[in-house]
C-alpha cells in the first residue's frame, strides 16, 4: 500500500519553499561586512593587526573543531560561525596583544561563550565578549590599548577623557574618530568602515534594526542628559558615539542572534539598556570603554525582556488546564 515505489519521491514536511537564507550565508555576509574594518586595521596597525586577527580566527576555528570532537558532536566548523567569533574577538584586542593572550581569549570565547551552552544558538552571552571579558579581567594591563601602545602617535580618546577630563579631548576632531584615527580595539575603532559593513548587513536583512537603533538612541540620550547636567564636566554625546567601540558594539556585538531578544519591543529596550549602560560605565566605571561590559550586562536581561510579548492570536489557551482564551 503506501510504500515508496519508483520513482522514489521525497516525502517531507511543509513548507516546501524557502527564502534561501542559510546559516553559512549569514556568516559569510557578516564576514564580508567586517572586511572594510579589517582592512582599515591592517592599514593603520600594520602587520601586527593582521597577526592578531589571523591568530584569533585560526585558534577559534581549531578550538571549535576540537571541542566538537571531544563533545562527540557533528562537526560544525563549516558554517563559519567560529571564524566570525574569532574575528569579532580580535577586533576588540589591541594590536600589540601577545600571542598567548589572543589564543587564550579566542579559546575562551568559543569554549565558554558558545560550546559549553550547546553550540551555535545556545549562548546566552555574546561569545566574543565572553572571551574579551576573561582577558580584560585576568590580564588587564595587556588589554589596555593605551598602555601597550605608547609608541603610537594616535590619540586614545576615551583614556584621555577618563584620566584628563573633557578639556583634553577638545583637540580631537570627530572626523578623525570617524576615520578610525584613534587607539582602541584594532577593528572596533574604524567607525566609518564598520558603518559601511553594518549598512550591508541591514540591507541583506541579517541584523534587526531595532537593536542598533535602541543602542545608539540610548547612548546619545544618556550622554546628552549628562551634558545638560554639567556641560563642562562631560563629553558631548557624539564624541561618545564615535569614540571607542560604540558603533562596533551597536551593530556587531549587541545584534548577536542568540543573546539578543527576539521580539521587536524587547529588542529596542535591550538596545536602549545597553546604550545607556555604556555611558554609565564610561562615567562612573573603572574601565575607559564600557561597551563590552554594557552589552554583556544587557545580554543577561534578554530572557526577561523576551517575556514582553503581544497578545497571541485568539488569546491564550491551554488544553491541560482547560482555560479557554478565545472569546
Amino acid at each position: 500500500m503506501l510504500k515508496p515505489l519508483n520513482p522514489i519521491l521525497t516525502v517531507a514536511v511543509p513548507p516546501h519553499v524557502h527564502c534561501g537564507r542559510s546559516i553559512r550565508r549569514y556568516m559569510v555576509d557578516t564576514l564580508i561586512a567586517l572586511m572594510p574594518a579589517a582592512l582599515m586595521a591592517v592599514v593603520i596597525f600594520g602587520v601586527e593587526g593582521l597577526r592578531v586577527m589571523a591568530l584569533s580566527c585560526a585558534v577559534a576555528v581549531t578550538a571549535e573543531f576540537l571541542l566538537n570532537r571531544i563533545m562527540k558532536r557533528e562537526q560544525s566548523v563549516d558554517d563559519y560561525s567560529a571564524l566570525v567569533t574569532g574575528l569579532l574577538f580580535a577586533f576588540l584586542l589591541p594590536a600589540s596583544s601577545p600571542w598567548w593572550l589572543v589564543a587564550v581569549g579566542s579559546v575562551t570565547a568559543i569554549a565558554m561563550g558558545k560550546m559549553i551552552f550547546g553550540g551555535l544558538g545556545g549562548s546566552p552571552l555574546c561569545p566574543a565578549l565572553v572571551g574579551w571579558a576573561a582577558c580584560r579581567i585576568s590580564w588587564g594591563s595587556y588589554m589596555d590599548t593605551n598602555a601597550t601602545m605608547l609608541s603610537s602617535h594616535l590619540a586614545a580618546p576615551l583614556q584621555q577623557l577618563k584620566y584628563f577630563g573633557p578639556d583634553s579631548i577638545g583637540s580631537i576632531h570627530f572626523s578623525d574618530l570617524l576615520l578610525g584615527n584613534q587607539l582602541g580595539g584594532l577593528g572596533a575603532v574604524h567607525v566609518a568602515a564598520l558603518l559601511v559593513g553594518a549598512a550591508y548587513l541591514l540591507l541583506r536583512g541579517h541584523i534587526k534594526w531595532e537593536v542598533p537603533a535602541g543602542f545608539i538612541t540610548g547612548l546619545l540620550l544618556t550622554a546628552w542628559v549628562y551634558q545638560i547636567m554639567a556641560p563642562t564636566a562631560y563629553a558631548p554625546p557624539l564624541f561618545h558615539l564615535l569614540a571607542g567601540g560604540a558603533v562596533f558594539g551597536a551593530f556587531f556585538l549587541a545584534t548577536d542572534p542568540s543573546s539578543s531578544p527576539i521580539g521587536r519591543v524587547p529588542a529596542v529596550i535591550f538596545g536602549l539598556m545597553a546604550g545607556a549602560m555604556v555611558i554609565v560605565i564610561r562615567v562612573y566605571g573603572m574601565y575607559p570603554d564600557g561597551v563590552p561590559f554594557a552589552i554583556l550586562l544587557a545580554n543577561l536581561f534578554t530572557p526577561l525582556l523576551d517575556r514582553i510579548r503581544p497578545k497571541p492570536f485568539g488569546g491564550t489557551y491551554s488544553f491541560l488546564n482547560g482555560t479557554e482564551g478565545a472569546q
Partner: peptide, 14 residues
C-alpha cells in the same frame, strides 16, 4: 528547488 530541512539548533535570530 525545494527546502531541505536540517536539525540545526535554533539561532534565536527572531
Amino acid at each position: 528547488a525545494s527546502l531541505e530541512t536540517t536539525d540545526n539548533f535554533c539561532l534565536g535570530c527572531g
